[in-house]
Simulated assay, not measured.
Amino acid sequence: MHVPLSILSCQRVLAAPDPLFPERLHARRFEQQLRLLTRWFRLIPLSRAVAQLADGTLPARAACLTFDHGYAEHAAVALPLLQRAGVPATFFIAASYLDGGCTWCDIVTEVVRNAPGERLNLARSGFASYDIGCPQRRRAVIEMLLAALRLLPPQERLARARSMARRVTPTMLSSDQLLALHRAGMEVGAHPLHHTALASLSNAAARADIAAGRSRIEDILQAPVRLFAYPSGKPGEDFEQRHGRMLRAQGFEAAVGMAPGAAHSGSDLFALPRCAPCAQAGAAFLLRLAGNLFTRP
């Protein structure tokens, strides 16, 4: 019998609703989701689920909750809600973001969100002048800039984003917050050090980025890190089977991507699928999770 495993992926959990992006997950809605998850699923740590997948002892309705990147709100907002609900989770950390970091996407978003007036001149960053006279136009400019920058190499992309901002407001975990997650009993896994898609790197660079990211996290936690999440996570595009072999050789136990569907006993433990559920609660949330159970990665 192939018992399915649902692995759910979250990024931001905002303290309050975002007027510019009302569809983004926030604390009240996340609390509602946790109530639904604990009612309909058996939530277990990812490391235990991986072991039970391997030996065929996975319980019915098993699910795991994971978080990516390492946002400060994971400790400040998500952790208290997880503890209150008694839900375990795994947090995948891009170690280069720790202690004052910010993703290029968040830099761009905040520049446009906080720009005064009705026009934003980004000529010095290689773009144009844009009408931002209403929230809809601000959001459209953000989405246009993100789409354009996403096509650039990672270092150039970050440099262009930083050139838009007079100063960058940190959004990521501090080392102390990461340690707090670990001491609260949450699992901590690794991204590559710079959160770069492994397929864009040479084999040597990929191995080095994997090892460096894990090493920094282990130095902070003084504990082994055995779980990994591929940035972006599209199989065959962002990572390949060779990267799973690299991870296995470095002693990791499993890795998750972002292919839809549920994992089963025969799944490749170094290319486990994950579902990004909608930020809604109620029927829409449950329907998304139910549909994922019947999707084969």
Results as ranks from 00 to 15, higher is better:
R137N: 02
A140S: 14
N114S: 13
P135V: 06
A147Q: 13
R139E: 12
I132M: 04
A123P: 00
A123V: 11
S129D: 14
L120R: 07
L146A: 03
L120S: 00
A123S: 15
V112L: 03
F127M: 06
R113N: 04
P116S: 03
I142N: 02
A148T: 14
G117K: 11
D131P: 04
V111L: 00
C105L: 04
R113A: 06
D106R: 13
W104Q: 05
I132S: 04
V111T: 11
C134N: 15
I142A: 01
V141T: 09
E143G: 00
T109W: 06
R119T: 15
R137K: 14
L149P: 12
R113F: 04
Q136C: 02
R139Q: 14
V108T: 01
N121I: 10
G126Q: 05
E110R: 10
E110M: 02
A148S: 15
P135D: 05
R124I: 02
T109H: 04
N114F: 05
V112A: 02
V112H: 01
I142D: 05
E110D: 12
R137Y: 07
D106E: 15
A123D: 12
L149E: 07
Q136L: 14
R138P: 03
A128E: 15
Y130P: 00
I142Q: 05
L120F: 04
R137D: 03
I107N: 00
C105I: 08
A123T: 15
P135H: 06
C134Y: 13
I132H: 11
G133I: 12
V111P: 05
F127E: 07
G117L: 10
D131Y: 10
S129Q: 14
F127Q: 10
N121H: 11
L146T: 07
D106I: 04
R150H: 14
A123H: 14
L151T: 14
L145A: 08
C105W: 10
R124C: 07
L122N: 09
E110S: 08
D106F: 02
L122K: 10
A123Y: 12
F127K: 08
Q136V: 13
A115P: 09
A128S: 14
L151W: 05
Q136G: 03
R113C: 01
A128D: 15
S125F: 07
Y130D: 00
P116F: 04
R139G: 04
L145W: 08
S129P: 00
N114A: 12
A148Y: 14
E110A: 01
E110K: 00
E110Q: 08
L149W: 11
A147K: 11
E110Y: 00
E118I: 09
L145R: 10
E118P: 07
A128F: 09
D131C: 05
V108P: 04
I142L: 02
A148R: 15
W104P: 08
V141K: 08
T109M: 10
R124S: 12
L146Q: 12
E110H: 03
N114D: 12
G133T: 11
G133H: 13
W104H: 07
S129G: 06
R137I: 01
C134Q: 13
D106S: 11
C105Y: 10
Q136Y: 02
R137H: 11
I132T: 07
E143S: 04
I107K: 01
R113D: 01
N121W: 06
R137Q: 12
S125I: 03
S125R: 07
S125D: 06
G126Y: 11
S125Y: 10
S129W: 07
L151H: 12
R150N: 13
R139C: 03
R150C: 09
